[in-house]
């Protein structure tokens, strides 16, 4: 979880991801931020998150992102 939070902070350092559970609703991540995060997750966890799963709802909070990593065969 810590690694994912650091990735999010690297992408958008101006936002407090640690105290939010509405990344999309709060405007913390736009579509290209999501693509950047997916690319970082794929590389770090040696997975390929399925293209059909790359929708804003799956990036709303840290738990949703963790589920994607696990679904792709990664280990947290």
């Amino acid at each position: 979880m810590e690694k994912v939070l650091r990735m999010l902070e690297e992408i958008r350092p101006e936002f407090d991801f640690r105290n939010s559970s509405n990344f999309i609703q709060n405007g913390f991540l736009d579509s290209l931020d999501i693509i950047t995060l997916v690319s970082m997750l794929d590389e770090y966890f040696h997975i390929s998150i399925n293209g059909t799963d790359i929708i804003p709802e799956n990036f709303e909070d840290i738990e949703s992102i963790n589920k994607l990593i696990l679904k792709g065969g990664g280990t947290l």
Binding site: G27, D30, S31, L32, N50, G51, T52, I54, I55
Partner: peptide, 24 residues
């Protein structure tokens, strides 16, 4: 609202919608 500047005379692409359409 996404820090990009464009006019109504320009191409507008809903990146999320197009990406999801292609992958689906």
């Amino acid at each position: 609202g996404d820090s990009n500047l464009r006019s109504k005379n320009d191409l507008i692409m809903d990146g999320t919608s197009v990406f999801n359409f292609v992958q689906t």
